[in-house]
């Protein structure tokens, strides 16, 4: 499934003419993208699929009034991020776990044999996934969703100072865990 630059427009055109067909094309083209964004934020694949369904359901429910002024792709990416944020906001209880940082795990043996890039990917993913939930949310929203500290603070109902602390904690944890990759340079 390639995303030619005009794919987005093509889908929107079809959507305007034939909502049923347009919806299916939109869904098949972007469900993977939307669910990956939600998954990256929430780190729960079943939840990510469910919330992604809701993203597209919102589009469908509002098909008569919806006006997409940017590209469809970035519209859906923003909607995905917002739905994930809403979920965090509405489920504070679920994410209220401790902030205690885990111990940095040893590298899996045999990792040197893998291609360097692959090993790095694996290690980074392992480390980020290990962060305490609140710390992970903060880091991911800042790093990958490009939210400002202020936006994160508002969305998560914490102070900007806390956001800052969580990011430094995450960075410190990653720094320790990635030591062998940092040394090489």
């Amino acid at each position: 499934m390639t995303n030619q630059p005009n794919k987005s427009e093509e889908i929107l055109e079809l959507f305007a003419k034939d909502p049923d067909k347009g919806m299916e094309m939109m869904f098949r083209t972007y469900f993977g993208l939307v669910s990956s964004i939600v998954y990256r934020v929430l780190n729960d694949s079943a939840l990510a699929e469910d919330i992604s369904q809701e993203v597209f359901l919102s589009v469908w429910k509002n098909r008569e009034t919806i006006k997409i002024t940017s590209s469809l792709k970035s519209y859906l990416a923003t909607a995905a991020r917002n739905k994930a944020l809403n979920y965090i906001r509405d489920n504070k209880v679920k994410f209220a776990g401790g902030d205690e940082m885990p111990e940095v795990p040893d590298m899996t043996p045999g990792v040197e044999k893998e291609i360097a890039g692959k090993a790095l990917k694996k290690r980074v993913t392992q480390l980020i996934d290990l962060l305490p939930e609140r710390c992970r949310h903060t880091f991911v929203l800042s790093r990958f969703e490009n939210l400002t500290y202020k936006q994160i603070a508002v969305e998560m109902g914490i102070s900007e100072k806390t956001v800052e602390n969580q990011i430094s904690k995450a960075l410190a944890f990653l720094r320790t865990g990635l030591a062998s990759f940092l040394d090489e340079k």
Binding site: Y39, R40, A48, E49, K121, V124, T125, I128, L182, K185
Partner: peptide
């Protein structure tokens, strides 16, 4: 800064079954 850049490698892809999802 280096750590921040390295974290680019966070590999969080979901490959859902599109037919089932549809």
């Amino acid at each position: 800064k280096k750590v921040w850049d390295l974290s680019e490698n966070y590999d969080k892809q979901l490959n859902p079954n599109i037919d089932a999802a549809w």
